[in-house]
């Protein structure tokens, strides 16, 4: 499986190894990831609620959007960067995790949703800028945006519950999970470490919750 060969080489990079070998790097990177996506979701919601005519209805849509979106994008870029860092540390496990895959699909859908908006209601925003809500297509985009981002948060949280040693995830054919562990398992994980991570942190190893 070439993708697994690639992911294995990602895991073997100096940076990914440094994250695995450090007890504090992963938690700090994850915390920054959380800070960034709370800003992303919190600020996007401001725009979505304005599209729906549920809040800030007396304000110009374009004014709100320009006030908010630079922070959304800045935080999004940082969230992607920290996300890639976390991914590199345990690439094959994340890649084969169903919640991770669902989250990635949702992020693509969020992008498509923004593109649809830009090509439709966004293009004509000068005509409804002062109206209390967007045209119907803009409202649909707003609802979808809120639903997608809330789902992204749920999926993201579930990744943390399904990628640590001891979780019984179905083993993916063609992946030799023994390679992940770099030796005999350190116990405490009911013997079934399929789906486990490459955790090399000192014992005890808490789950990535």
């Amino acid at each position: 499986m070439p993708i697994d060969t690639f992911l294995k080489s990602v895991e073997a990079t100096k940076f990914a190894t440094a994250i695995r070998d450090s007890i504090w790097m992963f938690p700090i990177i994850e915390s920054i990831h959380v800070i960034c996506f709370t800003i992303v979701v919190g600020t996007i919601a401001v725009v979505d609620l304005r599209l729906l005519g549920l809040a800030s209805t007396q304000r110009s849509f374009r004014r709100i959007s320009s006030d908010v979106m630079k922070w959304t994008w800045g935080a999004f870029i940082l969230a992607v960067a920290t996300g890639l860092m976390m991914f590199s540390n345990n690439a094959r496990v994340y890649y084969h995790n169903p919640f991770f895959r669902t989250k990635m699909i949702l992020l693509v859908l969020a992008g498509v949703n923004v593109a649809v908006f830009e090509l439709t209601a966004g293009r004509t925003s000068s005509s409804w800028d002062k109206a209390p809500s967007a045209p119907r297509i803009g409202k649909v985009v707003g609802v979808l945006s809120l639903a997608i981002w809330i789902s992204v948060i749920f999926m993201g949280r579930l990744i943390g519950f399904t990628t640590h040693p001891g979780t019984v995830a179905p083993p993916t054919p063609g992946v030799n999970y023994e390679d992940f562990l770099g030796g005999p398992s350190s116990g405490g994980s009911n013997g079934n470490t399929s789906g486990g991570g490459t955790t090399t942190t000192p014992t005890p190893t808490p789950p990535n919750q």
């Binding site: 959380v34 996506f37 979701v41 600020t43 919601a45 006030d67 922070w71």
Partner: peptide
């Protein structure tokens, strides 16, 4: 995981709102 996710949605609401208030106080937005 469900309650933790709701807790995270809650902090997202708080952070987004506090950011808007803070930016207004600073005159940045």
């Amino acid at each position: 995981p469900g309650v933790q996710s709701i807790h995270i949605i809650g902090i997202a609401v708080i952070m987004g709102s506090l950011l808007m208030i803070a930016l207004r106080v600073l005159g940045w937005a």
